[in-house]
Amino acid sequence: MQKIEKMESLREAYGNELAALGEKNRDIVVLDADLSSSTKTGVFGKKFPDRFYNMGISEQSMVSTAAGLSLSGKTVFASTFAVFLSNTYNVIRQSVCYNEAPVNFVVTHSGITVGEDGPTHQILEDVGIMSGLPNMKVIVPVDSVETTSVTDYLSVKKPSPYYVRLTREKFPVLNESNYEFHEGKSVTFRDGSDITIMAYGIMVSFALKAAEILRGKGIDTRVVNMSSIKPLDRTAIVKAARETGKIVTAEEHSIYNGLGSRVAEVTGEEYPVPILRIGMPDIFGKSGKGMELFDYFHIGVNDIVEKTDKFFKRDYI
């Protein structure tokens, strides 16, 4: 009998853990921009209305208020849809990052899994945008378990801001319940000696499925979860380059300024090897069912198999 994947919502895991942490830490305050039922911060808001601030459809006000609260000693979580937070780039740059205000931005509805909301809401550039900001850390959890662990990790106040990218869709649960997130460290879900696929978010589960198919083709594939985008696990990248010779990156994001770019930077500086970047090309998304859009844009499981197979067999001078 085929194993049935356990699917869980990352945003629900975030909301539930936030509410649980609120019981233990009275310094936690939560801000939202009129989307608390979707981002699931409303779970916290119902339990702790005196520490929950609905800023309305005013994301810039949310960001500046979050900066002030964090610099006043509060542990601040601020949430909205990923595309709406990116609209406040200059406020994040000036009020948060420049001042090293330790705000935890946890956004939902990122990437093409937003689905029917269409290209105006399917932000595909946010990892690059946020990674380019000085002092900003960027995390993209692979499943609900890692989301819970990341939320717990950020509940102990850190000296810098964070951007955590969540989604609308439910993802397969890949981690054991006792998993602990470690900033700047990757996790190897599957070892292999022929080629490495590095991914984050939903693309890790796609890469694992692709690796099983590739095994049938005689290609031993390593799969690495790179949920910590900034800081990046440079050691794991160089290790993969040395041991497997070729690296594929897979992401629900533009191939420009995303994981593929980061990995290429590291290998270019330390151990040059061929890199294949699988992700969205220089285009916007499209309205459609979230999970079906991966095949439409040729970044689904079968596409990863086909592209990796051709890449592995390609000779380089």
Rank of each mutant, 00 (worst) to 15 (best):
residue 157 K to G: 00
residue 158 K to F: 09
residue 160 S to G: 08
residue 200 Y to K: 07
residue 221 T to K: 03
residue 149 S to P: 07
residue 142 V to C: 15
residue 161 P to M: 04
residue 155 S to G: 12
residue 158 K to A: 13
residue 214 L to R: 04
residue 181 F to G: 07
residue 158 K to V: 09
residue 182 H to G: 01
residue 153 Y to W: 15
residue 175 N to M: 06
residue 207 A to G: 10
residue 145 V to Y: 09
residue 209 K to I: 02
residue 194 D to K: 07
residue 188 T to K: 14
residue 217 K to T: 10
residue 208 L to W: 03
residue 158 K to C: 10
residue 147 T to A: 09
residue 209 K to W: 04
residue 143 D to V: 03
residue 181 F to S: 05
residue 178 N to S: 15
residue 160 S to W: 01
residue 211 A to M: 08
residue 201 G to I: 00
residue 167 T to Y: 02
residue 189 F to D: 07
residue 201 G to S: 04
residue 205 S to M: 04
residue 171 F to I: 01
residue 142 V to Y: 12
residue 218 G to W: 07
residue 213 I to G: 06
residue 168 R to I: 04
residue 176 E to A: 13
residue 141 P to A: 14
residue 183 E to R: 15
residue 143 D to G: 08
residue 149 S to N: 12
residue 192 G to I: 00
residue 189 F to M: 09
residue 155 S to D: 02
residue 150 V to P: 00
residue 166 L to W: 02
residue 210 A to I: 04
residue 166 L to N: 06
residue 195 I to W: 00
residue 154 L to T: 08
residue 161 P to L: 07
residue 162 Y to H: 15
residue 220 D to N: 12
residue 199 A to K: 02
residue 218 G to H: 01
residue 207 A to Q: 05
residue 209 K to V: 05
residue 154 L to P: 10
residue 211 A to V: 05
residue 172 P to K: 14
residue 170 K to G: 10
residue 202 I to M: 12
residue 197 I to R: 00
residue 221 T to H: 03
residue 183 E to K: 15
residue 217 K to H: 14
residue 161 P to F: 12
residue 173 V to Q: 10
residue 191 D to F: 05
residue 176 E to P: 01
residue 186 S to N: 09
residue 151 T to D: 08
residue 182 H to P: 00
residue 175 N to S: 14
residue 198 M to F: 01
residue 164 V to R: 02
residue 199 A to G: 01
residue 192 G to N: 06
residue 170 K to E: 15
residue 158 K to Y: 07
residue 160 S to V: 10
residue 193 S to W: 06
residue 181 F to E: 08
residue 176 E to S: 13
residue 184 G to M: 12
residue 218 G to M: 04
residue 224 V to T: 15
residue 211 A to R: 07
residue 149 S to I: 11
residue 150 V to E: 01
residue 167 T to C: 00
residue 145 V to K: 11
residue 177 S to C: 02
residue 207 A to D: 06
residue 191 D to N: 15
residue 224 V to Y: 02
residue 158 K to Q: 15
residue 210 A to N: 09
residue 207 A to F: 05
residue 173 V to C: 03
residue 173 V to T: 15
residue 212 E to V: 11
residue 176 E to F: 05
residue 157 K to T: 06
residue 171 F to K: 04
residue 182 H to Q: 13
residue 212 E to N: 13
residue 147 T to V: 11
residue 205 S to V: 04
residue 198 M to E: 03
residue 206 F to Y: 13
residue 188 T to E: 15
residue 181 F to M: 07
residue 165 R to M: 10
residue 172 P to M: 08
residue 172 P to F: 11
residue 189 F to A: 00
residue 141 P to H: 13
residue 152 D to G: 07
residue 165 R to G: 06
residue 219 I to N: 06
